[in-house]
Nucleic acid binder design. Structure first.
Lengths: 246, 246
DNA sequence: CGTAACTTTGATCTCGATCAAGGCTTGTGG
DNA sequence: CCACAAGCCTTGATCGAGATCAAAGTTACG
């Protein structure tokens, strides 16, 4: 836990006036899957009051699988990879957490995954205890959390299909399509903020297979690679076909 | 939806006295992962009031992937398999729902999976609308649902590791161990209520590989097969080693 | 500019899929 | 109670997608 650096402003912030705190939450309100989305001002203020903004440097692990689940997080900026390890080092990346995403839902007392910042990150941290307290007070908050958990469950099941039944080419194409769906600007371009190794561990493949499959999609004229981690979609229809194995 | 048969008693039950309804819920209170567990009597009665007991015959599908998510279910007896299909028939079983399990959490407006009864089942059905109403009233209920969703998420992530990174032998051993953990009586025996095909689709393998792997665990003296769907664990330690690939 | 890490490509191997064929169980009707 | 059919389950032979091993090309960065 020494990887975390509490911002100097943290303790002060958590005692500031409600309005001030809502402002502190503003950067969070980026995505629909957000804890704060559709939350009345008063509740949002109470939520902000227990939030501690923290900063994590690139490469640092800030949630450790099997550690006591003491905190929840809301990503403000940067991206984290969430992963599980086997004793021999095999790894599966269960997901990526991006700005607006909520992090740290734990069914048990302990975390079921680790989280590592892929680049410098800012997060809002909530202690499990204080969030639980708010949960009892604000039904909207628990409803929101339930929505988030349900959405994640849906995504997890989709990924189980990908991992258990899809071919490498289908996995890659499915992944590119899902990234395309939540792209920010550039209409036809998908950014991959993760390395080939991360991609491999997310798709249940080896690095080499990821490379080769990307190359094949390129030579097939379905995508183009302006650089290793930018993908330009040349033929979206063909990509959809590739994703479903036809 | 014509697969469902509403029990004759259903409409009557939903208007009976609270105490009567709590009794109707009794068979549900079997497992910790239960919607009704740790629920005060009054809330439980309200929950029971909106529950409609239904019966599904073996082999019938009662939740259809992509259909509007109109209902939630609580399994009273029997087992269901939850699965997703690809257009060409490939299937992944995302889980099995057994007595006490809650069913139908949907992140979106539509179900993300199908559910089929593996044997005759009894379920309590709740309409999405009426349960949502109760959610606002009883914070404990949403807290419970959140717990359930979180636990399922944990299991889904574990399964992602299994599907993405484990060898066939490790998958089988892991599966047997997890079944062993929630076995009912017979100390060293695990029952498999599913066919080899279901097992294959749950573990992301082919039927043949499941068979061969079970056989190999048997010839290795780790398990014994009194019958095709009963597994006697002869060497639990070796099974754990097999599950972690050593 | 040099080095270290990452990506890509090639050669080979292997685990598990697929194809094929028996064996076993279960249920039904004679 | 047996015969038979229809599913299951199991085992064998072969194949192939993707892993692994190996090495070269590229990028990032001090």
């Amino acid at each position: 836990m020494q990887n975390l650096r509490i911002l100097p402003a943290a303790s002060g912030l958590s005692r500031a006036l409600p309005l001030r705190e809502i402002t502190a939450c503003d950067p969070c309100a980026v995505r629909s899957l957000n804890l704060c989305a559709a939350m009345p001002d008063y509740e949002l203020a109470r939520l902000a009051a227990i939030a501690v903004p923290i900063e994590v440097r690139a490469g640092r692990t800030f949630i450790f699988e099997a550690d006591p689940a003491t905190h929840f997080y809301n990503v403000t900026s940067g991206t984290a990879k969430l992963f599980k390890l086997l004793s021999d080092g095999r790894r599966i990346i269960t997901g990526f957490a991006e700005p607006g995403d909520f992090l740290g839902l734990a069914g048990t007392q302990n975390y079921g995954f680790s989280a590592e910042a892929m680049r410098g990150m800012r997060l809002c941290r909530y202690s499990r205890a204080s969030l639980k307290e708010l949960l009892g007070e604000f039904p909207l908050l628990s409803a929101r959390l339930l929505e988030i958990a349900s959405a994640e469950l849906l995504a997890a099941h989709e990924q189980m299909m990908l991992l258990g039944r899809k071919l490498a080419r289908e996995r890659l194409a499915s992944f590119i399509i899902s990234r395309f769906a939540l792209r920010s600007r550039h209409a036809e371009e998908v950014r991959l903020p993760m390395s080939r190794r991360d991609l491999a561990d997310y798709l249940g493949l080896s690095i080499e297979t990821v490379c080769r499959t990307v190359t094949r999609l390129t030579t097939d004229g379905i995508i183009a690679l302006p650089s290793a981690n930018r993908i330009r979609i040349l033929d979206l229809e063909a990509l959809h076909l590739a994703a479903s194995g036809q």
